[in-house]
Nucleic acid binder design. Sequence first.
RNA 1: AGGGCCAUAGCCAAGCGGUAAGGCAACGGACUUUGACUCCGUCAUUUCGAUAGUUCGAAUCUAUCUGGCCCUG
Length: 371
Amino acid sequence: MKKVIVGLSGGVDSAVAVIMLQKQGYDVEGVFMRNWDSSLNNDVLGNPNDPFDVCPQEKDYLDAIEVAKKLNIKLHRIDFVSEYWDYVFKYFIKEYEEGRTPNPDILCNKEIKFKAFLDKANDMGCDYIAMGHYARTKTINGKVRLLKGVDQNKDQSYFLCQLSQEQINKALFPIGELTKPEVRKIASSYELNVATKKDSTGVCFIGERNFKLFLQNYIPAKPGLMKDLKGNVLGKHDGIMYYTIGQRHGLGIGGPGEAWFVIGKDIKNNILLVGQGQDNEYLYSNRCLVKDVNWLGEPFTTLSCTAKFRYRQKDIPVTLKKLDDNMIEVTYLDCARAVTPGQAAVFYDGDILIGGAVIDKVYMNDKLRMY
RNA sequence: AGGGCCAUAGCCAAGCGGUAAGGCAACGGACUUUGACUCCGUCAUUUCGAUAGUUCGAAUCUAUCUGGCCCUG
């Protein structure tokens, strides 16, 4: 009997993942990961939780215990707090300090869930690990490919774009063939306590936070001016790093005309560039350079495929040109809005995820966008 | 201090005698395992710069005052 270690979060998805694995005849054990320690990591600002109350993380653990009991599996609890800090959070902060907009959950998958966790699971003698992601694997021509989840609305393959082939080979995604409503229905039929539990959001393992305040725990404010492209002063900001390209709220710019958006960052002069209109021209680009390439498809020099520049955004047709082993030029005929440095560009061939990379530089034709 | 114009929510702004549109911002919620975008909702009633008056009824008309803008000396 093959043994599978499941990352049991205390949510409905990973609980149903256990059920699916049991149905398929696997020997299943669960591991609850604890990767963030609020008091140790000192995230006082922006933490909505009453320090004297049971924190959501512990509530999740209790839920996981109950699920494990109900489904009759062993549950372990492992701390990766220091690994998370060293391999995910440090990078996260560093990127913000440089004015970029990182995606910590992609790194969390690469470094924690499918690395630190996988190592532990191997020590426990597992054949596979499994997670409650909406994604699939499928063996095509003898190679395991990572595919989008069947539920187009919940597809989470975007967050798995930095997994290596070795990591994918070891992973199972038991709910990838299901839709969210189906998952909840199965959970109900097993009378799981988490069947109707609200989906968790916010940074994985950290949770909902007032983002600006949260960052202020680690990055001091650095006030400066907000200007439009003509140099007119529109207001003041607390620090360029608290804003991201395409952001509307939190600018506090009222007055005549359309809404104002963050359209760029002049890091050198500590100026936040703002412009009016949801479809402000400066928010659009048609070419970008991506780095930290994780390539899972066939080797190529040029290639047509689709790309997603943000989670839950529709993929758009693109052409890739390999510049070197770690850099790809991506051009898209239809302009894309708010392609943001630090975010992930994820490439697909239909439902197959063929690569992921980090957006580095963004252009409109030959003009570099000051993002 | 001669003449003209304007004062409506934090910011723009409709209203032209009949019981305060809309937009931006802000706040709340939905959506969302990043961060955004988006969507929905709330937001002047001891209220229309102040005071007095005309009228059944005034943000709307009149007078005075205050504040600001423009033109001419």
